[in-house]
Write a protein that binds this DNA or RNA. Sequence first.
DNA 1: TTTTTTTCTTAATCTAGTTCATTTTTTGCA
DNA 2: TGCAAAAAATGAACTAGATTAAGAAAAAAA
Lengths: 199, 199
Amino acid sequence: MLHLKDTGTLRKHILSRVDMDEDEVNHFLSHFTTAKFKKKQFVIQPNFVAKHRIYVVNGALRSFVFNENGQDFTINFAIDDWWISDFNSYIFQQPATLFVEALADSSVLLLSFENEQLLKKANHKYETYFRIIAEGGLAQHQRRVITNLSKSAEERYREFEEKYPQISQKVPQYALASFLGMTTEYLSKVRNKLSSKKN
Amino acid sequence: MLHLKDTGTLRKHILSRVDMDEDEVNHFLSHFTTAKFKKKQFVIQPNFVAKHRIYVVNGALRSFVFNENGQDFTINFAIDDWWISDFNSYIFQQPATLFVEALADSSVLLLSFENEQLLKKANHKYETYFRIIAEGGLAQHQRRVITNLSKSAEERYREFEEKYPQISQKVPQYALASFLGMTTEYLSKVRNKLSSKKN
DNA sequence: TTTTTTTCTTAATCTAGTTCATTTTTTGCA
DNA sequence: TGCAAAAAATGAACTAGATTAAGAAAAAAA
């Protein structure tokens, strides 16, 4: 059984998007399990089907891939109050291509694919919530594609810093560099250049 | 009033994703308007709110942005049986940042934001459909981010050709080049290199 | 058909960002 | 607290892909 304290932020996340009464949110939240992950622990691995959507209560996770040369690319970050998974795997219940790992000790809430189906059948409002987060994620990914195509590495870094200052504090630089589509070395150079400009 | 012929492919698109009876699909489809766009015509423009989601019956559209240097970047294509819009603008009803233009004379079905809200209120199944297409779009964008980060320009082109041979027939090369994150000149070089390898 | 406009190709030059090798700093943990 | 391992920084050499420029081909317009 879940403790109230664990689900407080997710409760807010839901209520800020869909109008539900107390009982409805409670029923929704009762379908989640809690879990804790140690830093460097894997949550999802390639070739296994992603069984869960993961809501981060606190901590930091990232999803990433290796390409054929063994280089590591961060696909997404998730810190407090964000969702993460290999959605391509989760939604279609196909083998994952991504890793999801903890970047720091983290507490999460897990929703299994089966429980999600039960929820969507049980109450229209639950499905509305899933629609809204999918649409939000779609819009966000579209914005990311736009920046990746149309801005230079330096601009991408500057924009990220401005938009997500909390994240760049929490994650290692190599993970941020590959998320932004550049090497660690180059990010280091960019950072240096920008900070020397300020002073 | 819409003619049946116009909505046939959208009908199939819906029924392959959500189980509806005849009346339900008809009611859903009655909320769309038809439109035809001439090649080069703009469907959505920056600073105006995207009022519609656009389903392409036949033809070809693309969404794109200009960056501050006036370079043009294709964000998405939509050919027969695809949806397109500036989703960031449409979903949140904020001013668009993208253009959407017709690359060829096209017939489309338009769903206004207001009508979409009516539909979602009217029947649970309609919302299920919107959830499913949002999730599909999210998964697709995530795959795109992965390729853009982890593959070379040549590989991106090869994969695209393999996956969407119909599209590269239909769209101008400069639009494809910027979609794949490279210049027209470089795409031309890549094409040449690959086709000379084959012979 | 001819003219005009748009798209595509080719080639030379250039550069943003990578690679590789080494050093310094930070982190974790016995 | 000290030491090994991981992460970050630095710099030099390199390259994938951009830029520029000019001509050829194709498509649209007249």
